[in-house]
């Protein structure tokens, strides 16, 4: 099952597509083409996601369009409309358009903000639209039919356990954090929570680098000035890991043994696969592919007239050289 996992980044979910689909659809999986027998003649599915403003959301958009292309081809009676928004207000407007103009009957939404989108989604649900919420739960869960999310706790826990094990419970760590958000806090608390059990593992400091390569470069430079003996840098994101590596290279520091990113971007996974950088040996999955999974699960369930389980958490998995191949998607932009 872990083989099926996928991964990715800040938002979410990564894994378990096939498994997810199997669990979700249960016995009805058997005949994807016979689906029309159960449900409405056609399914109009709306997909509302953030616009591609950085690597991860770029991946979201790419995977959403990938799902549209594949599913519409497989099911002639399925119509998918993908809308991208650059902020919560725009997303709320698009949602209205999807319901009133496009007349969707199912919705997969990746909300910008939980609170701001709860009412607009509730309005859609009142018009009998089947709602799957992805990644960020709404403040009022009764506005959603299904919730699919990634595992942010595992995003912090897995690297912590990996480091503790690899370094036999003894290491000096510096950490980068993303942007101050609950998501970042969850990861940070999970990470520090595990390492508290190891008295010889010291987290020297953790600073925000905003999920940004340049900020990560600067913060790492300063960490390197400040701490003379570092074993591991928890970059907590593959983009940030990129800046970290450049800073270490510039400072010609040899004490650092490993840089642990996060999300499983294709460049990082490729590096692990090829073993081309001794500092990069593992990563944790958290892939934008979750949006593909969510669309596929929702579309197939609706075509059959099924419902999805109320909550589905896509697990994050540890990526190492042994399993990296399953996490490598060369065509995805992320």
């Amino acid at each position: 099952m872990s083989e099926v996992a996928r991964y990715s980044r800040r938002l979410v979910l990564g894994a378990g597509v096939a498994m997810a689909a199997t669990v979700a659809l249960g016995c009805s999986l058997g005949g994807p083409l016979g689906s029309a027998a159960f449900a409405a003649d056609t399914v109009k599915l709306g997909v509302s996601i953030p616009a591609a403003t950085h690597g991860f959301t770029g991946g979201i958009v790419w995977w959403a369009n990938q799902a549209k292309a594949e599913l519409e081809k497989a099911h002639p009676n399925l119509k998918i409309t993908v809308k991208t928004a650059s902020g919560a207000p725009e997303q709320a407007n698009q949602l209205q358009d999807l319901v009133t103009v496009t007349k969707i009957d199912s919705l997969v939404i990746f909300p910008f903000e939980s609170a701001a989108l709860t009412q607009p989604v509730m309005q859609a649900k009142k018009k009998n639209v089947y709602v799957t919420v992805v990644d960020r739960g709404l403040t009022d869960p009764s506005a959603q039919d299904a919730y699919i999310a990634g595992d942010n706790t595992a995003f912090g826990r897995i690297p912590a356990e990996y480091i503790a094990k690899t370094y036999n419970g003894k290491a000096n760590i510096v950490a980068l954090r993303g942007i101050p958000t609950t998501l970042d806090n969850e990861r940070w608390e999970a990470f520090t929570g595990v390492l508290k059990q190891y008295p010889d593992i010291k987290i020297l400091d953790g600073k925000y680098a905003n999920w940004n390569r340049d900020d990560a470069f600067k913060v790492t430079q300063d960490f390197l000035t400040r701490f003379k003996d570092i074993d591991v840098v928890w970059a907590a994101d593959d983009d940030m890991a990129f800046g970290v590596l450049k800073a270490i290279e510039q400072a010609k520091r040899t004490d650092i043994k490993e840089v642990f990113g996060g999300a499983g971007s294709k460049t990082m996974v490729k590096t692990i696969l090829d073993g081309s950088n001794p500092l990069i040996r593992a990563d944790v999955s958290y892939s934008p592919k979750f949006i593909y999974d969510a669309i596929k699960m929702t579309a197939e369930a609706r075509l059959k007239g099924d419902r999805l389980p109320a909550t589905h958490i896509i697990p994050s998995a540890l990526i190492t050289k042994e399993n990296a191949k399953e996490f490598y998607f060369p065509d995805s932009p992320y």
Partner: peptide, 11 residues
Amino acid sequence: RLGSASPTTGL
């Protein structure tokens, strides 16, 4: 410096 440009460059 980084040999790359991304949508967060120069933010």
